[in-house]
Design a protein around this nucleic acid. Structure first.
Lengths: 213, 213
DNA sequence: GCGTCTTGACTGACTGTTCAGTCTATGGCT
DNA sequence: AGCCATAGACTGAACAGTCAGTCAAGACGC
């Protein structure tokens, strides 16, 4: 019955377009202010078609949330793959989450996070997904640390323990930068995070300007 | 002309009731799933009356957000006032934010936070308010540290710098506990936070069971 | 011709907001 | 004291707009 016909390909492309559009819309307007009609308009289709593919508004938006966050982590993994040194890797991760300049690559991610949290808080399904997503994130951090230990770049430390604290710290700091708290400027957040990393993992670190501004 | 007539008192009480009801509802169902009619029902009034007091749904909900968060900080201040020792004070703060047992006192605060962030991200007015709220929170932390330094309980440290990092860490940790991440259990979050505090401020700390569970 | 896409037109429900008017009590006036 | 005018609290009913989801029918590829 199933040879991958062009039709199926078209369908997959459509789904992806819709998910991407939905994610962008959510980031812009917020979860509950994103309408089926908006998504349809963005992909140049009728609202009915969106319903045809996703059945219900909620399924569409929830899937879009997952889709976007997953994309975020995937991109992060790629960036890591092309960076060998621990310190540079951590700098990359921190810059990626705290410095708004890096927003372009996965636009509006922060807005999505807030909505993801709010949804997860009340909907068990979303909650479960979010836990997995966050586990990926911590695993990534822990892997960076373990690689560094294996390569004798830093002393032996509990990578898992560090990942929990560091991930939490990054979340907290990026909330402030995303919400443009004047006291926690992006650069300051960057330094706070790196200082924590350097003292926890025991490598020397001094701020060498992170951006030319 | 103005002796506080009973009418004015009634009005103030009503407003407060509505704000409290709205806050609870937001915590339960979420910001955008909270209807004027729900709030009205909770206080035993007609929807029209809610509009009479707040003009618009958005004003009501936004004010309710502020109202609730402010109440949270006020309660925290009170708890601090009756706790003299630095370490105990920090333990109180951490328990207050990370341990779900303490939820009862200001129910549903976490749900509210997520919605507050989501709103702040997109609405400048809310954003400004949130910054002020968070400033209060950091100031409270910094004050605890400064008091401790003045009382020679700990060595001299940069209280402001500590408050930024510690507040961020607490935010991040409490997201995990609020979202019931199995990897970051409440007790673990508690320990991570206290360990960070003890090493940053230079006081000894070992976990003496935080709850009898 | 058959199944998968795709749509326009429609609807049914929900809900914020308005409005005209009721009820209550307070305060001044005689 | 008694009476009336005024203001503020309050409501029921209706309005108007919005939107998710339905449906029957057309288009397109195989």
């Amino acid at each position: 019955m199933a040879q991958k016909a062009t039709a199926e390909v078209v369908a997959d492309v459509r789904r992806d377009q819709m998910l991407a559009a939905a994610a962008t819309l959510i980031a812009e307007r917020g979860f509950s202010d994103t309408r089926i009609a908006d998504v349809a308009a963005r992909v140049g289709a009728s609202p009915a078609l969106v319903v045809y593919y996703f059945g219900t508004k909620d399924k569409l938006l929830t899937e879009a949330l997952r889709y976007s966050e997953q994309a975020f982590y995937t991109t992060a993994e790629e960036m890591l793959a092309s960076t060998p040194d621990v310190v540079k890797r951590l700098e990359t991760l921190v810059a990626w989450t705290c410095l708004p300049e890096h927003e372009q690559e996965t636009p509006g991610t922060w807005g999505l996070w807030f909505d993801l949290w709010a949804q997860a808080f009340r909907h068990p399904e979303v909650k479960k997904d979010r836990v997995e997503l966050d586990q990926q994130w911590r695993a990534m951090i822990a892997r960076v640390v373990r690689d560094a230990v294996d390569a004798d770049e830093i002393e032996t430390v509990d990578a898992e323990e560090f990942s929990v604290a560091f991930a939490a710290l990054l979340d907290g700091l990026s909330i402030q930068t995303a919400l443009e708290d004047p006291v926690v400027e992006p650069n300051r957040a960057y330094q706070v995070a790196m200082r924590f990393a350097s003292s926890s993992l025991g490598f020397p670190w001094t701020n060498r300007g992170t951006n030319g501004g």
